[in-house]
């Protein structure tokens, strides 16, 4: 894709940067232009700092040898944390999902990042994911539960099924995040699979001792 398609009238260095921004996920041609012209107006030292940050990410960030999460060394901070429960592994699609689960502050086990999901129409199969590495971690019997936290869509579910079939025979418990109605949503607008899952994983309303009318 020649840069002239996106910025036909811009000077070559400008067009080159617009083109570079445009290649980022979620950046359309308009946003790419806006970001580029913002950078042009930026003070020299700020621009250098920005460029250095990009290079720093590429130079210093690697994938953790154990869980494949983004790390600064061969072992990430979570894998290296001895306080964390090493009998549980939460399997997620992307490094950002680790951040999301951590934000909830309810999980103290370890993680495993697949770096994708099984997506037949995109030619992504089980061998393209970090599944071999996951199996490796289950070998010594420390892990008792694998929590599959892939996205609740068709490819995420299929990946969960695949993991279940892969790990089940090893005697490790495989669980899946509960799926149901999102808080604040209307049943009227729920799709059939969400409603079906919500019904399947319905829970009893706990009995209250007080305030019951006689």
């Amino acid at each position: 894709m020649p840069s002239s398609d996106i910025a036909p009238s811009a000077a070559p260095p400008v067009a080159r940067l617009i083109e570079a921004f445009h290649r980022l996920p979620g950046i359309g041609p308009k946003s790419a232009q806006r970001l580029t012209y913002h950078l042009i107006r930026m003070p020299q030292d700020e621009a250098e700092e920005f460029a250095a940050a990009i290079l720093g990410v590429k130079e210093r960030v690697v994938l953790c040898d154990t869980c494949a999460n983004i790390a600064e060394a061969v072992e990430c901070t979570i894998c290296g944390d001895l306080q964390r429960d090493s009998t549980r592994i939460c399997v997620v699609e992307e490094p950002l999902d680790v951040v999301a689960v951590e934000r909830a502050r309810v999980y103290s086990g370890k993680y495993h990042v697949l770096h994708g999901v099984i997506s037949p129409v995109n030619g992504v199969g089980p061998n393209d994911l970090k599944l071999r590495e996951l199996l490796e971690r289950l070998r010594d019997g420390t892990v008792v539960e694998v929590i599959v936290a892939t996205n609740p869509n068709l490819e995420g579910e299929a990946t969960a099924m695949y993991i279940q079939q892969l790990i089940g025979p090893l005697g490790v418990k495989v669980t899946r995040l509960a799926r149901g109605l999102p808080s604040g949503s209307d049943i009227e607008y729920a799709d059939d699979s969400t409603l079906a899952h919500a019904l399947e994983s319905r829970a009893e309303i706990p009995q209250r001792q007080t305030g019951t009318p006689e």
């Binding site: 869509n153 068709l154 999102p182 808080s183 604040g184 949503s185 607008y189 799709d191």
Partner: peptide, 14 residues
Amino acid sequence: KPGSKMGGHLDLLK
């Protein structure tokens, strides 16, 4: 987004 009225419907093979 979890609250989307569309997300659950617009999944593959639906």
